[in-house]
Write a protein that binds this DNA or RNA. Structure first.
Lengths: 123, 123
DNA sequence: CGGTATCCAAGCGGATACTG
DNA sequence: CAGTATCCGCTTGGATACCG
């Protein structure tokens, strides 16, 4: 049995938020849902770089964490939709701030990465 | 050579931000530095659940990404300090929003986790 | 005090194939 | 269309010991 020396309780508020948003696609998913993309196929189309399985996984976690609500319609062909819960909507300021920052600083950051990458490769 | 089928370009601004803040301790570190804790030993003391090595790692990445600046003083015993760059300071609204959200919703979220955990264990 | 090297466990996320 | 099962690699980050 593995017993970590360093437990990591959710003490600082930051940890709580990161625990929820930490997945690779979670902020993207919240952002997509907020923009009216509710069905799994739509979410997959806008996040085409992730496999359906992974998106489904992360949506499940968001659901478990109370951030999104899933509605399954018992029809054929199957249909499902995701909605933000009030909790989820209360996270939108964070998501918006993250998107705004990235949109503003993205190119500059990319340039910095381009400088860094060769250094690692050449080392 | 590993060649992923799904590349993950930094297209949506959100990805850029998560690339920078995605590490387990990065937001905590930025927050700590902003509160005037600059020396490695101080940062380690406030983030006692992480090993010095890991903190150092993440600080290095933050430095490479242009978020913090490191000043090494050539004295004995060794001394170093971290400061936020202007880029780093421009992220503070995000960090603050994350902290505020976690502080507000932390208990409720913890309660939700406590309900979830037994379900997994019992299954 | 600050930093590094080595080793390694675990979790996350991706590939693929399949069912209702 | 939506979801699940299985498999597996990579990355992350934690343990420990050691050097300047």
């Amino acid at each position: 049995m593995y017993e970590p020396k360093l437990e990591h309780p959710l003490r600082c508020g930051v940890d709580v938020t990161m625990k929820i948003l930490g997945g690779k696609w979670k902020v993207c998913l919240i952002h997509s849902i907020r923009n009216g993309l509710r069905r799994p196929s739509e979410l997959h189309r806008t996040n085409a770089y992730a496999t359906p399985r992974v998106l489904n996984q992360q949506l499940k976690e968001l659901e478990d964490h109370g951030i999104v609500r899933k509605v399954i319609y018992p029809v054929l062909p199957p249909k499902a939709e995701y909605f933000l819960t009030p909790e989820g909507e209360s996270m939108l300021p964070i998501v918006d701030a993250m998107k705004a920052w990235g949109d503003t600083h993205g190119e500059e950051f990319q340039a910095r990465l381009d400088v860094l990458a060769p250094l690692e490769a050449g080392a």
